[in-house]
Design a protein around this nucleic acid. Structure first.
Length: 306
DNA sequence: GCCCAGGCACTCA
DNA sequence: TGAGTGCCTGGG
C-alpha cells in the first residue's frame, strides 16, 4: 500500500531511535520487520530536496487476515490494512507543528528536533511494548533485539514470506501456558537473565487481569491511572512504564527518563542526573502534552553525541 | 577476556 | 524517604 505526501518522516530516524526492536535495515535502505502479526517491508522515497517528505510504501504479509486480538482501534484493524499502518506510523499527526512548538522551547531542543526531524512515535502493541521494555532494562540494544527474537522464535508463530521465515510476537496466553507447564525454565533458552522472572510475573499478572485486552483497555484510562496500573506489575518501574504508555498506549505526556535522557537533561538544562522528578517537571512545564515526543528527539540526539 | 548496558527490587539508615 | 547495592549475560 502507498501513502503519498507523507511529511516529517524518516524510516532510519523512526527505527533507529530505540522505540522498536524488531525492524532491520536492508541493503536498499528499506526496513523489514514484524508488527501486528504481519511481516512487513517499509520503504520511503523522499522528494528531491526534501529528505523527510515523500512516498511511504508498505508491503505487509499477514496470513489468516492478520487480525490481532484485543479491543483497541488498531487491534481491530487487519495488519494488511491501510488503517493499521497509518495508525502504526502515526501518519495523522502533524509532527511539523509539534516540532515547531518544541524547538521554540530552547536551542538544545531545536538542535535535537533538527537532528531527528523524521522521528515519529510508533503506535505499537501494548503487550509487546510491555515485554520488550522489561527486557530493555540494564541491557544493550543489540542484546535486547536478540532476546526479543529468541522469545518470538520459541513462543511465537512461525510463518514464511517469500523465502524468509519470521516469527510473530508471542501471545500472552501462549506464554502463560508454557510458563504454567514448564515453569520459568521455559524462558531459559531466550537468555533473558534475571529479567526472565519479571517476564514470567508480568505475564501472570496480565493474564490475571484479563489478558492483552486488559492492556488495550488502559488506552481509555487517564495517564496517571494507566501509569499506576502498569507500575504495579512486578519488574516494571517508572522508566519501563513510561515507555509502555508512550509506545504502547498512545499516552504522549509521559517522559521516560533513562541514562541518556538524564545525561541530556544535565548537559542541556543543568538538571542532576539522579533527579528524575526535576527532569519530569521540566518536561511537563516546557514540553507539555508532547513530552514523550520531545523525549524521543532528545534520546536520539543524545545518543548521537555520545 | 573484560566491561557494562535505555532499571528494578530490595535493604538499611 | 533516600541512597546504596546486587543482578543475568552476551555484544562490543
Amino acid at each position: 500500500m502507498i501513502f503519498e505526501g507523507v511529511k516529517d518522516f524518516s524510516l532510519e530516524h523512526i527505527f533507529e531511535c530505540g522505540q522498536a526492536f524488531r525492524w532491520k535495515k536492508m541493503e536498499d535502505g528499506a526496513y523489514a520487520g514484524v508488527a501486528g502479526g504481519a511481516y512487513a517491508i517499509a520503504a520511503f522515497a523522499p522528494e528531491s530536496g526534501r529528505p523527510h517528505e515523500g512516498r511511504l510504501t508498505v508491503r505487509a504479509h499477514a496470513p489468516e487476515g492478520g487480525r490481532t486480538e484485543g479491543h483497541g482501534r488498531l487491534a481491530a484493524a487487519p495488519a494488511e490494512s491501510r488503517e493499521f499502518w497509518a495508525g502504526y506510523f502515526d501518519l495523522a499527526r502533524d509532527y511539523g507543528a509539534i516540532k515547531r512548538r518544541l524547538a521554540a522551547s530552547g536551542s538544545a531542543m531545536a538542535e535535537a528536533v533538527a537532528y531527528g526531524a523524521g522521528i515519529r512515535i510508533l503506535e505499537q502493541d501494548p503487550w509487546e511494548a510491555l515485554i520488550s521494555f522489561i527486557i530493555s532494562q540494564n541491557n544493550h540494544i543489540p542484546r535486547i533485539r536478540g532476546c526479543i527474537e529468541n522469545l518470538c522464535r520459541h513462543f511465537g508463530e512461525r510463518r514464511e514470506y517469500g523465502g524468509d521465515e519470521y516469527f510473530t510476537f508471542p501471545k500472552a496466553e501462549g506464554l502463560a501456558e508454557a510458563l504454567t507447564e514448564r515453569g520459568i525454565d521455559a524462558l531459559a533458552p531466550c537468555g533473558l537473565g534475571y529479567r526472565a522472572k519479571y517476564i514470567a510475573e508480568a505475564t501472570r499478572q496480565v493474564i490475571e487481569r484479563g489478558g492483552e485486552g486488559y492492556l488495550e483497555g488502559l488506552k481509555r484510562q487517564r495517564f496517571e491511572e494507566a501509569m499506576k496500573a502498569i507500575t504495579s506489575i512486578h519488574g516494571v518501574g517508572p522508566k519501563v512504564a513510561s515507555c509502555v504508555l508512550l509506545f504502547g498506549l498512545g499516552k504522549r505526556e509521559g517522559f521516560p527518563v533513562d541514562v541518556w535522557i538524564a545525561r541530556a537533561m544535565k548537559e542541556f538544562y543543568g538538571i542532576g542526573e539522579n533527579d528524575r522528578a526535576a527532569a519530569e517537571a521540566y518536561a511537563k512545564e516546557h514540553f507539555g502534552d508532547a513530552a514523550g515526543i520531545a523525549q524521543q528527539y532528545l534520546f536520539y540526539y543524545a545518543r548521537s553525541q555520545k
